[in-house]
């Protein structure tokens, strides 16, 4: 029989995990349970009266066309961000995969946007597309297109998508490049001998073999677009014009902190929580299935 190693009762193990536990409790468990509780209440804007209403807040949400509109908008926004940033990152990775010399330099440059805070990223794009000062606005003007995302909802949406996608490109690029480089070189060479040109090799060999990574990134990007784009939206459009870029996370903020509908806002964030939990479950369930070489 193997003897187990026994440690005497000690405060040390508790002390070692305490910081993580405290952070999780203070910044996640506590606010999440507050939101959960709050979502079942109706409170008047001055916080004088609170009433427990069970699921009324949720029922009301799903009957609210503004909310459903925001939901649709968010789905469109998320998939556009995921698609745009992944396609762009994939193209870059495919090019970097062929260049081995200087690949580290590429990687270093390409990771920079990821280190930029969402708000700053948003601010950069706001400056470049500013209707009066922006360099792109100027260029578009010279080409005969009048850009004003402060008035045109479509343009505003386009701008937040670009700003969000740009931020994710670096992350996606790194994963795509790593996935491509883990494909044995002899496979590509065999395909080259079989007569496949670079484009054909990409679509018939490389793309299928990196599909687990693609799926993983897809989930990651959707999660990012759903939940972490608040800063970008806030800096670029503040949800406007006329709510054209009000996505779900932004609506939570708007309804809760500006509109002071705390119950409704909490119900919205509970729904967001459920979405992120299900996306995470999907990810763990399917990403485990790996391609073997």
């Amino acid at each position: 029989m193997l003897k187990r190693v026994h440690f005497g009762p000690s405060w040390l193990p508790f002390a070692l995990v305490a910081p993580q536990i405290i952070i999780t409790v203070v910044f996640f468990i506590w606010p999440a349970s507050q939101a959960l509780y709050q979502s079942l209440l109706v409170e008047d804007p001055f916080g004088l009266k609170t009433e427990f209403v069970w699921f009324d807040n949720f029922i009301e949400l799903f009957g609210d066309e503004h909310y459903l509109g925001a939901f649709q908008r968010t789905i469109f926004f998320s998939f556009s961000v995921a698609f745009l940033s992944m396609t762009f990152a994939l193209t870059l990775a495919a090019m970097a995969d062929r260049v081995i010399k200087g690949a580290t330099t590429y990687r270093t440059f390409l990771i920079w946007p990821y280190a930029v805070a969402p708000v700053v990223s948003g601010a950069l794009w706001v400056f470049m597309f500013d209707p009066t000062l922006g360099i792109f606005t100027y260029t578009l003007g010279a080409l005969g297109y009048e850009w004003n995302h402060k008035l045109n909802g479509g343009e505003a949406m386009f701008l937040v998508i670009i700003a969000s996608a740009w931020k994710q490109v670096a992350y996606n690029f790194l994963f795509f490049l790593a996935a491509m480089q883990s494909i044995p070189k002899s496979l590509i060479e065999a395909a080259a001998i079989d007569g496949a040109g670079p484009t054909r090799r990409f679509f018939s060999i490389i793309l299928p073999l990196i599909s687990p990574t693609t799926f993983f990134l897809m989930v990651i990007n959707v999660v990012f677009a759903f939940f972490e784009t608040f800063g970008i939206v806030h800096a670029v459009t503040a949800g406007g014009p006329a709510k054209a870029t009000e996505i779900l996370v932004y609506k939570v903020f708007n309804d809760g902190f500006i509109g002071l509908d705390l119950g409704g806002s909490a119900a919205q964030s509970v729904i967001l929580m459920l979405i992120v939990i299900s996306l995470t479950v999907i990810q763990f369930r399917y990403v485990e299935k790996r391609v073997e070489y």
Binding site: P184, S186, L187, E189, A190, A191, A192, I193, D194, G195, A196, G197, I205, P208, L209, V291, E292, Y293
Partner: peptide, 20 residues
Amino acid sequence: LEPAERDIAMVFQNYALYPH
């Protein structure tokens, strides 16, 4: 000439079969 234009076939040490 590119490998494809040389009218050759090659067998690799690790076989290099397309896994998918």
